[in-house]
Amino acid sequence: MNPMPELAPMLKQLRLSGLLEALPARNRQAIEEHLAYTDFLALLIQDEIARREQKRLSQRLRRANFRSHKTLEQFDFAFNPGINRALIQELATGQFLTEPASVLIAGPSGTGKSHLAQALGQIAACQGQDVRFMTQTQLLGALNEARATGTFQRRFQALARVALLIIDDFGLKPLRSPQDEDVHDLISERYEQRATIVTSNLDFSEWGDAFPNRLLGAATLDRLRHNAYRVVLDGASYRSPKPLPEPPHSPLANSAKTAEQ
């Protein structure tokens, strides 16, 4: 007798319909290996826990809104050997999330800042942390849109409370009022409460130049830099253009050169 038709509605009622996928294979395994009922039940429960965790991870990655799937394993440390690999491996443990502390990543365009930030974000998501990845432009655009629709406080608090906020390309465009106030308020709200990763093409000494109000900028950066981990990515760009191919050999041009001689 096949118990599946009878089990299906009961498992759905208990919100355990995911067990239906693993049940046939586990049932065969139990018969072939003569498993005890408790061992068979334990395997099914393990399958359900793994399925739910994978579903939650997929949801966290979708909410994070990463540009692409970037991992630390894909990061080419040999390309720019000056990178502090030991520090990055330490950050990969997730300790900065529990402190909590900021991670500031600076370097020229194309040196892997966004890749590294997203890779650390991927690790945080796998560790069960909620993550948001946004460029400075996206962040300010979202807050401006929320202000226009009367949902600013709700949007602001969502960004303030997320376990890890990644702000990419900070300072790429100068801030204007009230953008500088929004950035200040957000960093202040997260200060010593939540971890933040910020990437920028600017040297650390130039970050204050992004703020039209220097006093406000100094107050913001003072909080951001306090106990922060600093990563400098310097060297060649991963986006260096490929060399142009040699022009094709032209018999006509050679003939003309011979005629001139």
Results as ranks from 00 to 15, higher is better:
T149G: 11
A158C: 06
L221Y: 08
A117N: 03
D185F: 12
L20R: 04
R161Q: 15
S188G: 12
Q138E: 15
I166S: 01
F156K: 11
P251Q: 00
W207G: 01
I187S: 07
R223E: 03
R85P: 00
V103T: 07
Q54H: 15
R194D: 00
A25P: 01
I197F: 05
I123S: 07
N27D: 10
L252T: 13
R26L: 06
T135P: 02
D209C: 03
D168A: 07
L19H: 01
I45G: 04
N144D: 15
G235Q: 11
Q29P: 08
A124S: 10
P24I: 00
T220L: 05
K257Y: 09
L140R: 00
P5A: 08
L216S: 06
M4A: 12
P247E: 10
E181V: 11
L57G: 04
T199L: 09
I45Q: 13
Q118V: 11
A210L: 02
I197G: 00
Q13S: 14
M134T: 10
L44D: 04
L139H: 00
L87S: 11
P241W: 05
A117Y: 01
A146T: 00
L44F: 02
E6S: 11
E33D: 12
A219W: 03
P212E: 04
L43Q: 10
F211C: 06
K70C: 07
L140D: 02
T220P: 02
T196K: 01
T151F: 12
R154T: 12
L7H: 05
P3D: 05
I45E: 13
R60E: 04
L172C: 09
L233K: 03
I197P: 00
L87D: 04
L139P: 03
R230C: 13
V183I: 15
R147W: 10
V231N: 03
L23A: 01
Q54G: 15
Y191R: 08
L116H: 08
R56Y: 07
F204L: 15
D168E: 10
G82I: 10
I105S: 03
G107V: 06
G208T: 14
G107W: 03
Q129N: 10
F211N: 05
T111G: 05
R161Y: 11
I123A: 07
N213H: 10
A92Q: 10
D130A: 11
